[in-house]
């Protein structure tokens, strides 16, 4: 009994010292709690469905950030990975009768292969040329899908695939928990030594090579990791919607993910996720004025990017926290001195 009390006390202490000290961490904790506790408040199928789709797209946006935000390999054809993941898991599920538990990971592996197929020819390209080349890949795949309607369903897509589960709550928790787990994994990757190399490749690739790092390996790693996560998102999407159509490969899909990531703040992982959770429900909310829906949406995005070029999350973070000039530890904006080194803030 003492042991339980002791460990609970210790957990509380860690929570107080690590989470409660920074408003941004409190917000992240609240976000986790709110997502996991939402069904206690409402079980409205419409809201649950919106949150599930938002979670799927959050994985997708974060995977773009992993590749383009961190490594600087501007990918304007990210829908390719989403589409490959969706189509492969749908086809595997339909023809091989593998349940979603197996077909989603297999679809993700197909997306990794797609990542390598895109990544290898793109190794020599940079900036605009890379962006334009990657833009072509999903269009090529769409062409292939339309050319082989017997296997891919053509414009109608692959339908009749099974769901993970038919229960509302089961689906909700499956998608939300997957999203939170993958987000933490992606954030951990970017926070590790590998993340430092990804960052450095974005800054100056030649200098990374001259530091003795095999940049080819790391760029392909970024492409395949990004493909993996986007493929999982695609697979989840196909199984949730019970259809994998050519809309998953659309150009608008590729640009949507760029908008999300830039809106939230590139090279953060949490930025794009937050952006999806803001923008996707917002776009649904604008359904009240269907004629002006996309126009209002575009106006919101434009205004935000005009006044917060670093992304909304950076902007909010800088308002509620400030960085200690000496030890670079972040502090609550109301503090007068740093919580670690007691240096004067501002």
């Amino acid at each position: 009994m003492d042991l339980v009390v002791y460990s609970l006390k210790k957990l509380y202490k860690i929570f107080r010292n690590e989470v409660l000290v920074l408003p941004s961490r409190v917000i992240v904790a609240l976000f986790f709690i709110a997502l996991l506790g939402l069904p206690l408040v409402t079980r409205d199928p419409y809201i649950i469905r919106i949150v599930i789709l938002t979670s799927i797209f959050a994985i997708f946006a974060a995977s773009w950030d992993l590749l383009s935000g961190f490594t600087g390999q501007m990918n304007f054809g990210h829908a390719l990975f989403f589409g490959v993941g969706a189509y492969s898991s749908a086809l595997i599920n339909l023809h091989a009768h593998i349940p979603p538990w197996g077909s989603v990971p297999l679809g993700a592996i197909a997306a990794v292969l797609a990542g390598l197929i895109v990544g290898i020819p793109c190794l020599r390209l940079k900036h605009t040329y890379l962006a334009l080349t990657t833009l072509a890949f999903p269009i090529i795949l769409t062409g292939i899908i339309f050319a082989l309607p017997d296997y891919t369903g053509g414009e109608l897509g692959v339908s009749g695939i099974t769901r993970f589960t038919n229960s509302l709550l089961g689906n909700y928790y499956l998608h939300v928990v997957t999203m939170l787990t993958l987000a933490v994994i992606m954030w951990k990757i970017t926070d590790s030594n590998t993340g430092i190399i990804f960052h450095a490749i974005r800054e100056d690739e030649l200098a990374v090579k001259a530091s003795g790092i095999n940049t080819t390996f790391y760029k392909l790693l970024a492409f395949s990791l990004s493909g993996l996560f986007a493929g999982i998102a695609g697979g989840l999407y196909a199984h949730y919607m019970r259809i994998a159509g050519p809309s998953t490969l659309e150009v608008s899909m590729s640009f949507m993910v760029v908008i999300w990531a830039i809106f939230g703040g590139a090279a953060t992982i949490y930025g794009p996720i937050a952006a999806v959770f803001i923008l996707f429900p917002l776009l649904e909310f604008f359904r009240f004025w269907p004629e002006y829906r996309t126009m209002i949406f575009a106006a919101v995005v434009l205004v935000i990017l005009l006044y917060m070029p670093e992304g909304i999350i950076h902007w909010i973070r800088d308002k509620i926290e400030k960085e200690c000039p000496r030890c670079k530890i972040r502090n609550v904006a109301t503090r007068k001195s740093c919580r670690i080194c007691t240096a004067d803030l501002d």
């Binding site: 430092i196 450095a200 800054e203 030649l206």
Partner: peptide, 14 residues
């Protein structure tokens, strides 16, 4: 050719 937007220590960590 430093990695300008990275901390100095991260430059060397690479």
């Amino acid at each position: 050719r430093p990695f300008r937007r990275m901390p100095i220590i991260a430059n060397v960590m690479v």
